[in-house]
Amino acid sequence: MAMATGKKRILVVDDDPKILKALDQALQQEGYEVYRAEDGLQALEMARKVKPDLMILDIMLPKMDGFEVLAQLQSTGGVPTLILSARGEEMDKVVGFNVGADDYLVKPFRLSELLLRVRAILRRTAGAGAPVDEDRPLKFRDIEINRSSRTVIVRGQPVDLTPKEFDLLWLLASHPGHVFSREALLQRVWHSEYSGDEAALTVCVRRLREKIERDPGHPELIKTIWGIGYKFDG
């Protein structure tokens, strides 16, 4: 499958042929390279093959629903995703964001609004860079993180981290600039959906800062995004 050089690649996933056609045409007119899938299994296969810059994903899909597609892709690094759904219930939105969605748009929608959200997501993720090679250490300022050996070097000295501290650090550092909600971090690091575990996250962040920041009281790497969660500002 040929891919045009320089164009952002967008995978559109919907089982409604009319919506697929309309989005395909609108996105191509905006200069994007568009790929299409009509069910969850095809979406999963296409996403892994094409490695899109953005996925527009319907939830109610044949063979595998959109939440499961998103969850499986998140386990291997994830794809920036705009969810489309006829269901606007708050719980559906919470589930979508918890499994890694970047935005959520309820059907019916205006194409102009969808295009604005597509551009916003692509701007936010532009600094995230290429998918991380897990065999290659991450290096930021005076810190080096090696996933294969699960070691961290800070200012030339090895630092001992607990398994959860390392997992949290790797998740944040492998997506620099990306804001993770507290719920998303609990789901992806602790595999928990219970808000009562937020204290564990708070403590883990505090201990990480004590171990890797020059001044834990004024962190430069692990930033708090008030009311949302955290990001790694490498």
Rank of each mutant, 00 (worst) to 15 (best):
L54G: 05
G229D: 00
P219A: 05
E213T: 01
V99M: 13
Q72T: 12
G100C: 05
E30A: 07
K164N: 09
V50W: 02
R207E: 14
A126K: 02
F180L: 00
G156L: 00
E210T: 12
K211W: 09
G156R: 03
H218C: 08
A200L: 08
S192C: 12
A128M: 14
K63Y: 14
V118G: 11
G127K: 10
I56S: 04
I56P: 01
F67D: 00
D103A: 14
G77L: 13
W170Q: 11
D167K: 07
L84R: 01
A184K: 07
D39K: 15
G100Y: 04
K7V: 01
I10E: 10
Y32I: 05
R48V: 15
G96R: 05
P80C: 09
A173T: 00
K223H: 07
K49T: 15
L23G: 10
F140W: 07
R123M: 10
W170D: 02
S75D: 08
P52V: 06
L82S: 09
T151I: 08
S174K: 02
M1H: 10
G227M: 02
S75E: 09
D102R: 13
S112N: 08
R110I: 05
P176N: 05
E220C: 04
R150V: 14
R136N: 14
T151F: 07
I19A: 11
R182E: 09
V13D: 04
H191M: 14
R214Y: 09
R124Y: 13
E90V: 08
G31A: 01
P163H: 03
K211H: 02
A37V: 04
G96C: 06
A26Q: 07
K8D: 06
L221Q: 01
D135I: 05
L169C: 04
L169W: 03
D103F: 13
I212M: 00
G31E: 01
A120D: 12
L11P: 07
V95A: 12
S75V: 15
D142V: 02
A130I: 10
W170N: 05
N146S: 10
A86L: 06
S112P: 08
L84P: 03
A86D: 10
D167P: 07
I143S: 00
Q74S: 14
L168N: 04
L61A: 00
V118K: 02
I19D: 08
L221S: 04
L70C: 09
F97P: 00
Q157E: 15
I228S: 05
K93I: 07
